[in-house]
């Protein structure tokens, strides 16, 4: 019983991490049809930004309010990187989806290499504040505190994104743009402004995932982003590419399946089980669990 509870909470924590990455990916993909390979780079920038700020930024530190400041710095760095990528790389290539994907592929190779050049390929120990180190009992099981933090952060981001989508004018434009971009443009709304906005949101969520992932894994490495990104892609496909709720459900499902299969069978089989689930979903319901629109629009 205690193992099951621990596995559930850890799986939820992993799912929360996936959700933070995948929500931005699916927003970007839904609105702009860009498969953003540079998303892993935003994550790495967030993680390294937090780690760097905790050691070097005045006022920031590895514990307490200082760590919060370091996280804010990391998320800001990731957001800034995302906005810059949208403005300088994606914007000049509007309407050329192949080239946009190729450009983000180039970035996904270059940015981790740059990080590796500056801080080396070896993993760096991530600071762990007092508040989230140690365990907190749940149903008689000692669960590491960072899992709660991850789940909490994902819930906050989910609610914030949901409120943004349903209550604000920009959210309305984004939703309308996801459904029919041409129609929104025809109505006289400059949908391109929301492209930058969506990239900023996605970058911020990914950078948050990076700095929380640092807490979860305990270390930061330049290539962490890529391996998480692949699972985020899987989550996006299973979740139906454009739906926030589908994305959340798929993240939790993938996280739980991975944890349970990895624990009860051979390590590594959980990751493969996730791929099997993906194949099953694709073969039975194209377009994902909740999606009405399929991911096939772009060639």
């Amino acid at each position: 019983m205690s193992t099951v509870v621990l596995l559930i909470v850890t799986g939820l924590g992993l799912g929360a991490l996936y959700f933070l990455i995948a929500s931005g990916l699916s927003l970007i993909f839904g609105l702009m049809d860009v498969l953003n390979f540079a998303h892993g780079a935003f994550l790495a920038i967030g993680a390294y930004g937090t780690w760097w700020a905790a050691e070097n930024l005045p006022g920031a530190g590895p514990a307490g309010v200082g760590f919060l400041l370091a996280m804010v710095f990391g998320v800001a760095a990731g957001t800034l990187a995302a906005v810059l990528v949208e403005l300088c790389v994606i914007r000049p290539l509007y309407g050329r989806h192949r080239e946009q994907i190729l450009a983000t592929v180039g970035l996904s190779l270059a940015v981790p290499a740059l990080i590796q050049a500056i801080w080396g390929a070896d993993p760096h120990t991530f600071p762990k504040p007092e508040l989230v180190s140690g365990t907190l009992p749940l149903l008689g099981v000692n669960v590491p505190k960072d899992r709660y933090l991850l789940i909490l952060a994902a819930i906050v981001v989910f609610v914030a994104l949901w409120l943004f989508n349903s209550r604000t004018r920009y959210g309305l434009i984004v939703r309308a743009g996801v459904q029919d971009r041409a129609m929104v443009t025809a109505l006289g709304i400059d949908v391109r402004k929301s492209f930058t906005l969506v990239f900023a949101i996605g970058g911020a969520a990914a950078a948050l995932a990076g700095s929380l992932g640092g807490l979860y894994f305990g270390v930061v490495t330049p290539t962490q982003g890529m391996s998480l990104l692949i699972f985020a892609f899987i989550v996006v496909v299973i979740g139906g590419t454009t739906s926030l709720t589908g994305c959340a459900i798929a993240s939790v499902t993938v996280g739980l399946i991975q944890q349970f299969a990895n624990y009860y069978t051979v390590a590594g089989l959980g990751d493969i089980a996730v791929v099997a689930v993906l194949a099953a979903v694709l073969l039975t319901r194209q377009g994902g669990l909740t999606g009405k629109k399929s991911a096939e629009r772009v060639a």
């Binding site: 498969l35 899987i234 996006v236 694709l282 194209q286 096939e296």
Partner: peptide, 9 residues
């Protein structure tokens, strides 16, 4: 599947 979905699969 086609396009981006094929890429991801």
């Amino acid at each position: 599947v086609n396009g981006i979905a094929l890429a991801m699969v």
